[in-house]
């Protein structure tokens, strides 16, 4: 790692101020950022830890939505929403491994927007709202491609609001070495329709599969997806799987998710 200064502010306001310095970088749980720094793929002048900010921790409910603080670790989400949003809890409970889940945070994952991460699928599939230090961004506007989001320089994900669906499930086909999603599909049925979000597959990062959403909104059953497929063009193709393989997996995992959601 290149040398950097370290700050651990106690409030969102102090963190925003600390991030105004040139080349300052926010640090969530560090489960992606620290390995990135070790490889010298980034050279921040200063890391501003968000883990000491009490107002960014924890889970609450407001107006039919679950509100999760941006610095809440995956393990706390897995425990905290098991009753209210089991599909989200299950997703959180299968990110990385137990030690990673004790450090990695939902805000960090969403800010990074890894194309194979799980949380982007939950946020987009739930039509969540990303809350930052300065505004609210709906998930449909937030994710803008691989490792790209609507966040401005120095903007912090302070929390996420998830509308609770009637039914939902997330099915992940793991890349066996990294445990990231080779393909992951999040399906959520709301009163006004079904949302289907796919991670791991596309070169554009997480995306909604609108054809499947339309089919499932009229008939929420695995059979409703028969004959539907996503084009292999634009799918990630690497040593772990070809674009055609990933495209095929999207439909398979979507069907499994619908079956599991019941």
């Amino acid at each position: 790692m290149y040398a950097f200064d370290f700050e651990k502010p106690g409030s969102i306001a102090d963190a925003v101020a600390a991030l105004k310095d040139e080349d300052a970088q926010a640090l969530g749980g560090g489960q992606t950022l620290i390995p990135t720094l070790k490889q010298r793929l980034a050279m921040p002048s200063k890391l501003v830890s968000l883990t000491g900010i009490a107002e960014m921790q924890g889970i609450s409910k407001a107006g039919g939505e679950i509100v999760i603080g941006g610095a809440t670790p995956h393990a706390a989400v897995a425990d905290g929403v098991a009753g209210d949003y089991p599909a989200l809890a299950e997703l959180a409970a299968h990110i990385g491994d137990p030690a990673v889940r004790n450090r990695g945070t939902i805000g960090g994952s969403l800010a990074n927007n890894d194309p194979a991460a799980c949380y982007p699928a939950a946020a987009l599939g739930s039509g969540a709202t990303i809350v930052t230090d300065r505004r609210e961004i709906v998930a449909d506007d937030y994710f803008q491609g691989m490792f790209t989001t609507a966040l401005d320089e120095g903007e912090i994900v302070t929390g996420v609001r998830f509308p609770v669906p009637e039914k939902a499930s997330y099915m992940k086909f793991e890349q066996p070495a990294s445990r990231f999603a080779l393909v992951g599909v999040f399906v959520a049925k709301y009163a006004d329709g079904v949302r289907v979000a796919v991670t791991g597959a596309s070169e554009e990062g997480v995306f909604r599969w609108s054809e499947a959403e339309a089919a499932l909104s009229s008939d929420f059953s695995p059979a409703a997806l028969d004959g539907l497929s996503v084009p292999a063009d634009g799918m990630i193709s690497d040593l772990h799987g070809s674009g055609a393989y990933r495209a095929h997996l999207v439909a398979v995992m979507a069907k499994r998710a619908v079956a599991a959601a019941g």
Partner: peptide, 12 residues
């Protein structure tokens, strides 16, 4: 909590 001490800063 179990954590990977190679992926946490001492300052944290």
């Amino acid at each position: 909590k179990a954590v990977k001490s190679c992926t946490m800063l001492a300052a944290e």
